[in-house]
Computed example of a mutant assay.
Amino acid sequence: MPTRTALRLALLGSLAAVAALTLLPAGTGWSWGSPATELRWYATGLESGATVLQLLGNLALLVVPVALAVLLRPSLGRLPRLAGLALAGGTAIELLQWALPLGRVVSPVDAVLNAAGACAVGLVVARSRRPTAEPRPGRGLSPRAALR
C-alpha cells in the first residue's frame, strides 16, 4: 500500500490533470449544453466514436481523484458522502467553465456523468478496502453438521 504522502501527491496530481483537461481555454466565452439536447445526443449517438468518447470521458473524469480520496479518507466511501463530493466536484467544474472565458460548453449532464462515474469507483474502492470477516467455526454448515 502506498504511503499517505504518496497518496496525497497522487491526489494533487490527479486534480491538476482534471483542471488541465477541463479548464484550459478552447476558445472564448461559453455555450450552454441543453440537458434535453445532450441526453438525446447520447441516446441516439452511441454508434459514433465521438459520442462514446465524450460519454466515457465524462464518466471517468473524477475517477482517479475520488479513488485516491477514498483511500486517504475511508469515511468518504459511503454513498451520501460520495454523491455530495462528486456532484460538488462536477458542478464546480461546470461553474468555472461558465465563469471563465474558456470557450467551453457548460453542461449539467456532464456534472451528473462526472458524479456517476466517481460514485461507482468510490464505492468499489471503499468495498475493496473493507476487511473481510474471518469465517466462524461451523459457519455455512447446517446446525446438525456443526455439532459433529
Rank of each mutant, 00 (worst) to 15 (best):
R78I: 11
S142N: 08
V121A: 15
A115M: 07
L76G: 02
V63N: 02
L15T: 02
A10M: 14
W30P: 03
G122N: 05
A20G: 12
A92R: 05
T44G: 10
A88W: 12
A26S: 15
E94T: 05
L100A: 14
N58Y: 02
A16L: 15
A16Q: 06
T132A: 15
V64F: 10
W98Q: 13
L15K: 04
A60H: 12
G117L: 02
L96R: 01
P101F: 13
P25G: 10
S34V: 05
N58W: 03
E94A: 08
A83M: 14
R136P: 03
P65Q: 05
V64D: 05
L113M: 13
A86V: 03
A99P: 07
P108N: 06
N114A: 01
A146T: 09
V63H: 00
R8H: 10
V106F: 04
V109Q: 02
A19R: 07
N114S: 04
G57R: 04
A99L: 15
S128K: 11
A17K: 04
S34R: 07
L59D: 02
M1D: 14
V52H: 08
A146F: 10
A10C: 08
L100R: 13
L95K: 05
L95Y: 07
R129F: 11
L59S: 00
L72M: 10
Y42N: 02
T22I: 07
A16D: 07
A133V: 13
E94D: 11
L24V: 14
L55H: 05
R73K: 12
L21E: 11
P137V: 09
L62K: 00
G45W: 02
A133G: 11
N114L: 02
P25F: 12
D110I: 01
R127Y: 08
G140W: 04
V125G: 00
T44V: 13
N58R: 03
L72I: 12
A118R: 04
A86R: 01
R139I: 07
L46H: 07
L21N: 10
L12Y: 12
L7M: 13
L62Q: 03
V112F: 10
P80Y: 09
A10P: 00
V105T: 15
V63C: 12
V66W: 04
G49N: 07
V125K: 00
E134F: 11
G13R: 08
V121W: 07
L7C: 12
G122C: 05
L79D: 04
R8P: 05
L95D: 08
T28M: 11
V64L: 15
L59A: 03
L15Y: 07
P101C: 04
T28R: 15
T3Q: 08
P137K: 09
L82H: 03
P135R: 15
L79R: 07
D110W: 00
T44L: 15
L123W: 03
V52G: 08
N58L: 02
V52L: 15
P143L: 14
S128C: 08
P74G: 14
D110Y: 01
L7N: 06
L53Q: 11
L23Q: 12
V70L: 07
G33L: 02
G90A: 08
G49L: 09
A133H: 13
Y42W: 05
L72P: 02
L87C: 07
R81S: 12
G103S: 06
V106W: 04
N114Y: 05
A16E: 06
R40G: 10
P74W: 09
